[in-house]
Design a protein around this nucleic acid. Structure first.
Lengths: 233, 233, 233, 233
DNA sequence: CATGAATGAGGATTCATTCAT
DNA sequence: TATGAATGAATCCTCATTCAT
């Protein structure tokens, strides 16, 4: 329908603007929901509240999201990206070392939790136990995170001159690392009202994790050696 | 209302019977709810379903529990006891050693998770994000568990000849340990459908934790030494 | 739980009372809905209005009916009984004759339509085009009615000395009879605001139907004869 | 805006084209709606679905029709024309006879129902019980149809040498005829899934109607005679 | 104590209609 | 004219909790 060369431009301009506005609106809803879910809880938050907060109508929410659950799923989507960006960065810069885990831990606590407390609350509290679709997304998130960490672990243990461990060992260590940070974040940030201690805790935990991961890697090594020996015998 | 001297006896007998029956009824409701919450989710379970499963009337549920939320809180209560019994036992027998942590870990995975899967699901999934009262109880549960572990840690590090660490270090290590097992249990048991791997995983994780905790303790020591040195300088 | 002979009586008494009250409540809802559906239309009537009219709460409506649609279906159920009682009576008394159709017609117009105008409106207007479940029930209603009439037709034509006609002919004549009354009732009662003419119309239609049915029966006879002849040729 | 002499021509040309296109668009919407209403039901069909099916935007639907209800009303308008064309044709060709009713009946079943099943569904099912405006249009439709048939009846009875009957008798017979075909069409075509029987049924019903109408006419005559006699006496 | 019918606030979702572009 | 995003009123239904029996 657009005529002449510029027609296209005009059309694509307005269409791009539309697209941008649409994205913005989506984000607005998502952030309104994030704040409300984190503040009052997923179930205690009604669609009407979200609409009010986002300064749109109830019906409009459904132009951007299929259902209330869908909002939560997309929130997890965003959190997943944030999280892997913050944490993954530490492993991607160069050859990861044991120190990378300490840095990644600090990044998680200070870069992620500290920057976006609502995200943390949704990740660790509000998205838990809220139905299968949400659970599925959480699972993917954690699996992805675990893969990142497991890869780094493999690299690190190789660079430490440790023999390659079984895939499950690596997986387990990765989950263990995630779990440590999860619980610490939950205790200190969600339950703790101890935000001011965050830097100290981050520092201390980073140090501890260094020892813990180092110890686990070595232990896995020994165990494997033992197994090997036993098998040889 | 008691008549004659023996009245008291009679009454106390029947009153004791009453008391016992009351307890049984409570348990019945609690276990009905546990199964339903774990199976279909806390929100998807109605009081009517619980009453049906417990073979009593809806009204009777409210003779034993103030509200639906109250059932969940008491379920956490029970789980808390189970958990500390299973895990605590390993630390209480004698002088705890590093090995105790490995044993406690195995006990958690095999004794608790393996024996009562529904309890695990409620502890880690269904009781999360379900309102303040529940959250409060969960917090107490984890704090209690943490205290147990922290005490053991103090003992162990002393018996290992390591200098006493700051209370926070100990607390952090304890939370880290809890977190490791939480996430591993969630991944392998709740999401994993990998129940059959449980013994292997338990064994492997126990070994890893030995290394991890050992490493963390040593690292905490070093850090403290460093700090001390710095302070001295 | 009831003890002694009278216990049973007492229990069954109260249980019978309960049952009776339940039935009454059901009827109350049904009649509230009937009036509102007939007055304002099925879709324009909300569950809240029905509850108000029946002087109960919204939730209680759902103790007696699964859904709004379910109310309509049960309304049709009742109408079906009424209708077959009123119309069927005329055929059941003795050997039906051609006159029976005239009487049944009068009974339909005066006994059914005249007595329960709302029922008529629901049968012919509000239950039409309201979804599959309702349509299914309407279908059964009409099929049942048709069976009644078809049986009578068979009797009558035999008693008139007419040879038995094909099942389809009988079915068709029965539907034709139903259709005549339906449209006449719709025109004169639902659209007509001509309730006062009812007796006259009923009389006139009864007479006409006598001729019509008689004519149809004879015509079916001839046609059959013709077919037979053709087949013989 | 028209320039020069020919301007008018040009304008009227383009205006006629516009007009034609507008009509086409209207028809497109109408037919999209017809198919959807007949298929899924009036209420289950949304304006968006209609717009999609007609390959226009939601807003455009409102350039052609005031409301969703308005679409249904106009659909009835079209159906009314179709119907009277098909049925009326049989009476208009020459002097109508009793046979004309049989032919009109066949035309209704085969020409109308058989050719446009969706129209039938909308006429007999989807337009019923859908609010006052629609009901008003349906009433006009049936009244018009009735007038056509009543005129023909008057002609026929005169040509059969029967004395003129009361207007109401004629009206009643006309409604009776319409009702017969309505119910038969509903049963066999909408409920019946017996489309293949249509020709047979049409034939059989035509024959029966011959007898029925004949009988009704004669009976009306007798009754009138009786009344007259009574009045005379 | 036990029952289970009754309550009614609450919430997610739909959809006909409008209007700025 | 055409569009389709935005609106928000309207509605069905659920379910935790109460209380008369």
């Amino acid at each position: 329908m657009a005529r002449h060369g510029e027609g296209t431009t005009v059309e694509s301009r307005s269409s791009r603007r539309r697209q941008r506005e649409r994205e913005q609106r989506r984000e607005t809803i998502l952030h309104a929901a994030e704040a409300l879910f984190a503040g009052g809880g997923y179930h205690a938050t009604s669609i009407e509240q979200i609409a009010d907060q986002a300064e749109i109508s109830v019906g409009s929410v459904y132009l951007y999201f299929r259902s209330k659950e869908d909002i939560l799923v997309h929130l997890l989507e965003e959190i997943s990206l944030q999280l892997r960006a913050v944490v993954g960065r530490e492993f991607q810069r160069e050859q990861p070392t044991l120190e990378s885990f300490a840095r990644a831990g600090r990044a998680f606590l200070e870069g992620f939790c500290g920057q976006s407390y609502p995200s943390l609350v949704i990740l660790l509290r509000e998205s838990v136990g809220q139905g299968p679709a949400v659970e599925q997304r959480r699972r993917e998130l954690f699996t992805g995170l675990n893969d990142d960490i497991a890869s780094a672990l493999t690299e690190v243990s190789r660079s430490m001159g440790l023999a390659p461990r079984s895939p499950r060992s690596t997986e387990l260590i990765a989950f263990a690392i995630i779990g440590m940070f999860e619980r610490v974040a939950y205790q200190y940030l969600i339950w703790g009202d101890r935000g001011e201690e965050l830097p100290t805790v981050a520092e201390e935990l980073a140090t501890l994790v260094l020892g813990g991961v180092g110890g686990m890697l070595r232990r896995a090594e020994e165990q494997r050696g033992g197994e090997g020996a036993r098998q040889c015998g």
